[in-house]
Amino acid sequence: MNGWLFAIVQTLCVVFFAPFMAGLVKWMKCKLQNRQGPPPWQPYRNLLKLSRKQVVLADTASFVFRIAPYVVFSVTIVAVSVVPVISVQLPTAALADVIVLVGFLSLARFFLSLAGMDVGTSFGGMGSSREVTISSLAEPALLMAFFTLAMNASSTNVSTVIAHLSQGSLILYPSLIFSSLGLILVAIAETGRIPIDNPATHLELTMIHEAMILEYSGRHLALMEWAAMLKLTLYSLLIVNLIVPLGVALTLRPGDLLLGAVSVSCKLLLLALFLAVVETAQAKMRLFRAPQYLGLAFILSLLGMMSHIILEVR
């Protein structure tokens, strides 16, 4: 029972922390680019403002457009709830393993893309078309990377995988290196960051995620924005806890939990800095360069799996 309570509290913490993570990346990026920049808590203000505003709905919008924000947001919450953040003693992780997690993200994307098609403007269709194209290339790479880690731990349960990785010795397996690189590349693409998508622009020729949610307003828009921030946090958590499982608590003792919380915050901070540096140093790619980028991610993940099977199993 303790575990379930812990899972709920942890999920709520992540949900309410997500806007800060997104704001932090933006703030760091602005500082690196010598700009003033909004404070890291600006996204909270935006979300609050949006949730109070009246919803203006396009007259061509159907029920899909109206349920999509709720579906996307609640599916992302459930996805967050199965990822160990501070401790691996997470009962919810047994409900949905890593394949189900990928399935949740796909389900959210399915509704997001449908919402883009719903109003019948060309922006929405453009965004949906690009989103499904990019994610259909990213998803195999993501699954391959997860499978390599899962085969390593001989379990697809995220908690078990992280526990296995954190208990293992610090020998660097080639499979882990390859699949971590693949995972990072996919995460950048899937969360709509530079060089695949630019979260800061509304230029119609370049946007993907923003194009799909262009018709949203009020609380619907707040949910969509929040879900995107949550997705960024989710991928960040997966990256930091799977690649550097150092400090993740193996029990539910208060001391371990505190250590876990401190370590995961530090890791997230570093990752946010890394993301800000990458986004400052890189320019956005042309859309048709994206397949090469994602092809690289897929090859890396596949190499990870091959090297696991050929080098490490026997």
Binding site: T60, S62, V64, S106, R109, F110, S113, L114, G116, M117, D118, V119, G120, G125, S128, S129, V132, T133, S135, S136, L137, A138, E139, P140, L143, M144, F147, F298, L302
Partner: peptide, 25 residues
Amino acid sequence: SAMLALTSALAIACFVKVYGVIFLG
């Protein structure tokens, strides 16, 4: 299994197209 993953991702692309073009808009 990578092919299977690619298949299910492309199936999503296809059915977003089907549903979006036929029922939405």
